[in-house]
Amino acid sequence: MELKLGHHTKDGIEVVDVEGEIDVYTAPRLRELLIDLVNKNNYNLVVNMERVEFLDSTGLGVLVGGLKRVRAYDGSLDLVCTQERILKIFRITGLTKVFGIHDTVDEAIAARKSEK
């Protein structure tokens, strides 16, 4: 499977739903979506990766780029992921210390709200 993207607003936070494979071929589409959301003044994002089957360093780069963009507006980018195969690459690269990684979208939103 390649990449399916969607997004919706929940409790004032933009939730990005990602399904499929994020790699050197598909990552530019996710990058474009994140840039588009920020350009439309969405500075608090949750990326739901529960249905992501594959993630490589190009995808990580896109997520880091998105985080940099929202932080420029004092915003946030949290992740939802419980899959060990995906979490492993975050651990290898040390990015578990950079992103908030949660088990559910509701948990990610609650954690973000509690920090405000």
Partner: peptide, 19 residues
């Protein structure tokens, strides 16, 4: 490996090799 705090899409080569 390049420190995580400074990584972004500008240097995927080193990032990939680190992985």
């Amino acid at each position: 490996p390049v420190p995580a705090e400074t990584r972004d899409a500008a240097f995927p080569a080193a990032f990939g090799l680190a992985v």
